[in-house]
Computed example of a mutant assay.
Amino acid sequence: MSVDLEKILRETRTVAIVGVSADPSRPSHDVWRYLRNASDYELYLVNPTVGEIDGAPVYPSLADLPVVPDLVDVFRRHEHLPEVLAETIAVGAKTLWLQQGLWHEQVARDGAAAGLRVVMDRCLKVDHARLIGPRG
């Protein structure tokens, strides 16, 4: 399953970061900070256990977002990925992006069958910096 990462990144306008952490030492927080500072994406943070991060609201689920995100960037454990896929399909997002270290063949197959572009085991920050660059 081949996807054009640069095309995805250039077409994306809204990103939901699922599993974002308020802890600045966590990778999800680092990716959010990078995207906030280096991209033009509208960012939406999702984590049912956090109310806000640096003044930005954090939503309990994808269904609670005020918009349909183009891309859902996932920082959740492997066993939660099917649930995140179901939520991603339900809200009508276009791309499911599983962060570096996350790989789930069944989620990829089911996501593709539902019309999603699925990216696995890639860091959104790294690929954005490499292919688009700050405010590119």
Rank of each mutant, 00 (worst) to 15 (best):
Trp103Ser: 14
Val74Ala: 05
Pro66His: 06
Gln99Leu: 09
His128Lys: 03
Arg76Val: 02
Arg130Pro: 00
His80Ile: 00
Phe75Cys: 02
Glu83Met: 06
Lys94Asn: 12
His78Arg: 15
Leu45Ile: 05
Leu85Glu: 06
Val18Asp: 14
Pro48Ile: 07
Glu11Gly: 11
Val67Ser: 07
Arg33Tyr: 00
Asp54Phe: 02
Leu9Pro: 13
Arg33Thr: 09
Lys125Asn: 05
Ser28Leu: 11
Arg122Gln: 15
Ala86Asp: 15
Leu81Met: 12
Glu6Gln: 15
Glu83Phe: 02
Ser21Asp: 09
Ser28Asp: 10
Leu9Ser: 13
Ile132Gly: 01
Tyr59Ile: 06
Val50Tyr: 03
Gly51Asp: 11
Glu11Pro: 07
Gln100Ile: 11
Ala56His: 13
Ala56Thr: 12
Arg77Ser: 12
Gly19Pro: 05
Arg26Thr: 07
Ala108Thr: 12
Arg76Gln: 02
Glu79Cys: 04
Arg109Trp: 06
Pro57Met: 03
Gly136Ile: 04
Lys125Met: 12
Gln106Ser: 13
Leu102Ser: 09
Leu98Glu: 08
Asp23Lys: 10
Tyr41Asp: 09
Met120Pro: 10
Pro69Cys: 03
Asp54Cys: 02
Arg26Trp: 07
Ile132Asn: 01
Val67Ile: 13
Gln100Thr: 14
Ala38Pro: 00
Cys123Leu: 01
Asp30Gln: 14
Pro60Met: 02
Asp40Gln: 13
Glu6Thr: 14
His128Pro: 08
Asp70Gln: 10
Leu81Trp: 04
Gly111Ala: 09
